[in-house]
Structures are given as C-alpha cells and as structure tokens.
C-alpha cells in the first residue's frame, strides 16, 4: 500500500520522484534556516532604514511606487513587437471574424484529409 505512494514516476525516458525531492528539500531547508539563524536578526523599525531606496530621492506616493502590470517585460515586448502587433491585429473582437477563422480552418482541414 505504502509502495504505491512512494513509486517513482517513470515516463519511459526519465524519472521524477516528488517524495524524495520533498524530503531532501525539507532537510536542506532546515539546515539553511539554521545557518541563517546565525545572522543578525535586528534592524531599526520605522526609521529611514526601512524606506525604499530611490537613490536619495524623496519617496513618491504609494500608488506611484507600484510598477504597473503594463510596464513589465518591456525588453521582451520591445524585441517581439512585430509578433505582438500582428497578433493584436488578428484579435478584432468581431464575431464575424471568429466565424471567418472557423471557415478558414475547415478549409485547411479539408486539405489535410485530401479533398481539395
């Protein structure tokens, strides 16, 4: 019975045993927490120490300190702009186009089964 739960997951080309990993993870976690425990725990709460670092500038309002979702991954969107723009153009939000795509796929599949 216990065996069934401990069995290694074998994909035919590789292995994965979650239980072993979890055990190792927990053990190492404990060791690391102990090592970390040697460190200094203290800091001065509520002083300038805990303010966000902005190269010495005054901190902005909280809402402005939060980087918004649409600003993330700039580097990626910048270098993949052409793909994204093309895809955005594809998503018109018009139901007629949705049906048109359906017809297009039907055409392609007809090609696959060898009718056209």
């Amino acid at each position: 019975m216990l065996d069934m739960f401990l069995q290694t997951f074998d994909t035919g080309n590789g292995f994965w045993n979650p239980i072993v990993w979890i055990v190792a993870f927990v053990v190492i976690f404990l060791i690391v927490v102990i090592i970390r425990g040697f460190g200094n725990k203290n800091y001065k709460k509520g002083t300038g120490q805990t303010k966000a670092f902005l190269s010495g500038n005054q901190e902005y309002e909280k809402t402005q300190m939060h980087v918004k979702a649409s600003n993330l991954y700039w580097g990626w969107t910048e270098s993949m702009k052409w793909v994204i723009d093309g895809l955005k153009k594809m998503h018109t939000g018009n139901v007629s186009d949705y049906v048109l795509w359906f017809v297009v796929v039907m055409g392609i599949l007809l090609l696959c089964v060898g009718l056209i």
């Binding site: 998503h91 939000g93 796929v105 599949l109």
Partner: peptide, 27 residues
C-alpha cells in the same frame, strides 16, 4: 468515403472551436 471526409472535417473544426483551439479561440 467522400462524404465521411466532409463529415470528419466539419466535426473536428466545430468541436475544436468549442474547445478554443487557435485560431478559433477568440470567443
């Protein structure tokens, strides 16, 4: 047969659209 092929295409395309497969995923 010829008709079966058409039926296959209609079924796959329509059900894949229900399943949200690109490029019929926009809904």
């Amino acid at each position: 047969s010829f008709v079966d092929k058409i039926a296959l295409v209609l079924l796959i395309a329509a059900l894949a659209m229900k399943g949200g497969i690109v490029p019929m995923h926009m809904w």
